[in-house]
Design a protein around this nucleic acid. Structure first.
Length: 925
RNA sequence: GCCUUUGUGGCGGAACGGUAGACGCGGCAGACUCAAAAUCUGCUACUCGCAAGGGUGUGGGGGUUCGAGUCCCUCCAGGGGCACCA
């Protein structure tokens, strides 16, 4: 690739940016004057060129790296992409998930932002008023880790990373409105976030409660679930303890039903994500019911005389053979006070792995309390009460009734402890008298049996009957349960948004008054010992109680960084507002019309943002018209690459390997020492596997357009794309091809704004047809985010222009100009720098970015004659070219005359002929 | 285990229930060249056949239909999510 540079002409060293865009012909002239430079090239002497020969022989290659900088600076100076509510056209808010400022962008970013940029640029060209902002999700642990390792301040580290990544993003040529940029660690941003928090606190949407947390005893901090690996802290390796600690929560469960129901309105979200969220919220309809307890071991106070359980299978109540309490149930604790063996059992349940896999494999364990429970509808039927390890305190009431016949967990438990297993739901095709369970529980459909007055009912009818009866007896209540828990937002960390709360011994929990906001992070902190730097800071937490004025202490916890990203999309609509949002701007821009990001955020970030939108409406920081924050969601696939391993087992970077051969005989060798390299699996680009390609390197050697074009080609955007050198080279070739086609077209085409000729010959019409068809398909594909299909259309159309170039005839020059301009329009959203360059080369001194997408002439989208397939008995035998408007009878007659059709009919009589106009003929014999 | 996706040439992938394999990569051949590179033009699912022309093909099996990659049932394989949620 680098070999071609010797033939790249320097075409813009004297190019005038300030005067706008110099006509490309000027470049051409300057180019001619530069030929001397080329002759002195040390590598090879190109043939001497004159203005005449250059057109026909060696045209200059497009120098991407150099031209891209130029167009980026033009866009910047003209503020081309600055959004305003005052601009014309319907609004369109395009947003990609903002990055964490790790310091360098990776190919995943390139793909994400290229996808969004194509969409945003296309919408602009269609006349929309586009908002396309960018910012930084800048709080988080990596900054603290870096501070520990590099003895620096998390803020310094973060802002340096932001500067480096901003430069990289700018080199991609994204149509971003940088004037709205902010980082979530900016005081101005987290100031408003503290206001939001306090508004939610005032409404009861944020509260302090006690809950279980993962506590790392070595690092002295709470860990998020993701930071617990195989029951150990990811940093310290210490066994993580479950601790009850006071924590701050958002009352997301208040909106559980709304968040679930509204999923149905998100018709521009992937089904997959909606299903994942629905499962996460996990609504189930059931019945709360009360069992009367008795037995010598039962504590005397009346509150223990009843046990409330939750079930979704009230229809199986007659099959219940035991009740089970969670080890965390209050009655369990009460009983354990006088029972050493039970204490030991509870401890045993607390051990064991916390990973999902461990839990699934864990054996069912039970402890017989000696207490008996009375069936709420048949009081003389008594069943034993156990404490069981598989009953969760966090769901329902922390107690269940077990029906072994129709629940596998209960079945396992009953089998182990010798409890009765009675089938009460009989599959429809079985005889209740002879039916036996197949050695496991049965949870399919059927009719109720062995259940007294419920016998013969359907499952649903029995559920309803039991609920009605228990409600009448005041022993039951219909209830909807959710799997969703309130969102614990406390983190014992420094680099996050301080929770603006003050604890006073006398007055209790106090909100920091608005005039004392923001609660700023102290600068002078140390990271040399584990624990929360805010908690051990000598002065920061000490303050006066806002109510009584006595000494008090600040909350030293900071907010989960997911809080920061739960409302940033709203802040972008008015990034400098003195309140969290400006309602007018928010109402104009929101919801986000197209949101693009990784599937890994399918649940948490997207659910939290949906909650925040509702909480912000409740606290009047969001117009009530905004029901959902993201109207359209697109989840893009990953960027993957081959992996390479040296003979000693070390991973190698792609740049450390050279290759010989292709396909089956392709071999890799270590450049450093020539040793053979093992070519491994294609995997997600990752630091650990070293299968990384640095966007900076690609942009420097091939240009941003090339990187963009590559990640948009071939693979559908929602699937993984495999990064290959060959693919990059292919993309690079196409860039040169578009440039060459534009040059050659510009030379042969009619001048800018030539009047449309009165007549076109057949070939000119053909070219126009393909131009309008391609333009239409590309627009449709881009709007459907099917960029790989758009790319294929563009390739196809480029070939059509290539074929048409040498033609002449009536209207040809005009049609060629139209075609070349269309090609530039199509390429523009994907390769914007090349687009501008070609636009200038076609003779314009305006910006392509400011041009409207051309209007398609509908008449050119349909052909006069069409070719349709002719089948005999559903098998294609021939094809028929006929006038598009031909009558069915004529089509049928013509089809039946085809030799191949006659032959395939083998002289049999025709039973039926199906003619689908403009599609197909099928002869049935 | 449950939910959810995906399965099409050597590869990435196209295809409102209507000519399967668009387009790209790779490969083969040709043009240009002293030669190479670059570029351009063809061909390229498998299979029988010299050809003309057949046959088979979208993970397997069944079904609906004049017609199925596409719809339905079922099985297999890969990816993702949830995972003792009563």
């Amino acid at each position: 690739m680098l070999g071609c540079i010797c033939r790249c002409f320097s075409i813009s060293s004297t190019y005038q940016i300030l005067s706008g865009i110099a006509p490309a012909l000027d470049q051409h002239r300057r180019l001619m004057a530069d030929t001397g430079k080329i002759a002195s090239s040390p590598l090879k002497d190109p043939p001497a060129m004159t203005a005449e020969t250059v057109t026909e022989t060696a045209r200059e290659r497009y120098n991407a790296a150099e031209r891209e900088r130029h167009w980026q600076s033009v866009w910047e100076q003209r503020e081309t992409f600055k959004a305003s509510t005052k601009n014309k056209g319907p609004k369109c808010y395009v947003l990609e998930m903002f990055p964490y400022p790790s310091g360098r962008i990776h190919m995943g970013h390139v793909r994400n932002y290229a996808l969004g940029d194509v969409f945003a640029r296309h919408k602009r060209s269609k006349g929309f008023n586009v908002l396309h902002p960018m910012g930084w999700d800048a709080f988080g642990m990596p900054a603290e880790n870096a501070a520990m390792e590099k003895k620096t301040h998390p803020g310094k580290w973060t802002y340096e990373n932001i500067a480096a990544m901003k430069r990289q993003l700018k080199s991609m040529g994204l149509s971003l409105d940088w004037s709205r940029e902010f980082a979530t660690c900016d005081v101005a941003y987290y100031h408003q976030q503290q206001r939001l928090f306090l508004a939610m606190y005032a409404k009861g949407l944020a509260y302090q409660g006690v809950g279980k947390v993962n506590w790392d005893p070595v690092d002295q901090t709470v860990l998020a679930n993701e930071q617990v690996i195989d029951g150990r802290g990811w940093r310290s390796g210490a066994v993580v303890e479950q601790r009850e600690m006071p924590s701050w929560y958002f009352r997301i469960t208040k909106y559980a039903d709304e968040l679930l129901e509204a999923l149905n309105t998100l018709d521009r979200w992937p089904e997959k994500v909606r299903v994942m969220q629905a499962n996460w919220i996990g609504r189930s309809e059931g019945l709360l019911m009360k069992y009367q307890l008795s037995g010598a071991t039962l504590p005397k106070p009346k509150k223990w005389s009843e046990l409330e359980v939750f079930t979704t299978r009230a229809d199986t109540i007659f099959g219940g053979s035991f009740c089970a309490l969670s080890p965390g149930h209050p009655l369990t604790f009460e009983l354990a006070k006088k029972n050493k063996a039970l204490q030991a059992f509870i401890e045993e349940c607390g051990r064991g792995g916390t990973s999902a896999e461990d839990l699934a494999k864990a054996e069912k364990l039970g402890f017989d309390t000696g207490i008996m429970a009375a069936h709420p509808l048949i009081p003389d039927q008594q069943i034993p009460v156990y404490v069981a390890n598989f009953v969760l305190m966090g769901y329902g009431t922390g107690a269940i009734f077990g029906c072994p016949a129709h629940d596998q967990r209960d079945y396992d438990f009953a089998a182990k402890y010798g409890l009765k297993i009675t089938a009460v739901v009989i599959p429809t095709d079985e005889n209740p008298a002879t039916y036996h369970l197949p050695g496991k529980s049965y949870d399919g459909p059927g009719a109720i049996a062995n259940s007294g007055f419920l016998d013969g009912m359907s499952i649903d009818a029995a559920k309803a009957e039991v609920a009605t009866q228990l409600e009448a007896l005041k022993k039951g209540k219909r209830r909807t349960m959710y799997r969703l828990r309130d969102w614990g937002l406390s983190r014992q960390r420094y680099w996050g948004c301080p929770i603006p709360i003050i604890h006073c011994d006398d007055c209790g929990v106090q909100a920091v008054p608005d005039d004392q906001l923001p609660v700023k992070l102290p600068e002078d902190v140390t990271f040399d010992v584990p624990g929360n730097p805010l908690a051990r800071h000598p002065t920061w937490k000490h303050c006066a109680c806002p109510k009584c004025g006595k000494p008090a202490v600040r909350e030293t916890e900071t907010m989960d960084t997911f809080v920061d990203s739960s409302w940033y999309f709203a802040r972008f609509t008015a990034p400098n507002a003195a309140t969290p949002t400006d309602l007018k701007s928010a109402k104009y821009w929101l919801p986000v019309d197209q949101y693009i990001g990784g599937i890994e955020h399918a649940i948490l970030h997207l659910l939290y943002s949906r909650f925040f939108a509702r909480a912000m409406i409740a606290t009047k920081h969001m117009p009530s018209s905004i029901k959902e924050p993201f109207g359209g969601l697109f989840t893009q696939g990953m960027v993957t690459h081959e992996t390479y391993k040296s003979r000693n087992g070390a991973w190698l970077l792609p740049g450390e390997v050279r290759f010989e051969g292709e396909g089956d005989v392709r071999r890799g060798f270590e450049i450093a020492n020539g040793a053979a390299v093992e070519i491994g699996q294609i995997e997600k680009m990752s630091k650990s596997k070293k299968n990384l390609v640095d966007p900076d390197d690609i942009i420097a050697s091939y240009g941003a357009d090339c990187a963009r074009w590559f990640v948009l080609s071939d693979s559908p955007p929602d699937r993984d794309v495999i990064w290959t050198e060959a693919g990059v080279a292919g993309a690079s070739r196409f860039i040169q091809r578009v440039w060459r086609l534009t040059e050659e077209s510009a030379d042969r085409a009619a001048p800018v704004k030539s009047p449309r000729p009165a007549t076109f010959d057949a070939e000119a019409i053909e070219l126009r047809r393909s131009a309008h068809k391609a333009l239409n398909k590309v627009a449709v594909s881009i709007e459907a985010l099917r960029f790989n299909v758009a790319v294929a259309q563009i390739y196809e159309f480029a070939s059509a222009i290539q074929a048409a170039l040498p033609k002449s005839g009536a209207g040809h020059a005009w049609a060629l100009r139209e075609a070349a301009e269309f090609l530039v329009h199509m390429v523009g959203p994907m390769m914007p720098h090349l687009g501008e360059e070609c636009w200038a080369r076609l003779g314009y001194n305006t910006l392509l970015a400011d041009q409207r997408w051309p209007t398609v002439e509908q008449a050119l989208l349909v052909d006069d004659t069409i070719t349709i397939a002719v089948q005999v008995n559903g098998k294609r035998r021939d094809e028929l070219t006929i006038a598009r408007t031909a009558a069915n009878a004529d089509v049928e007659a013509a089809a039946l005359k085809l030799e191949a059709v006659v032959r395939a009919m083998e002289g049999k009589p025709i039973r039926k002929v199906i003619v689908v106009p403009q599609r197909i003929v099928n002869v049935v014999v």
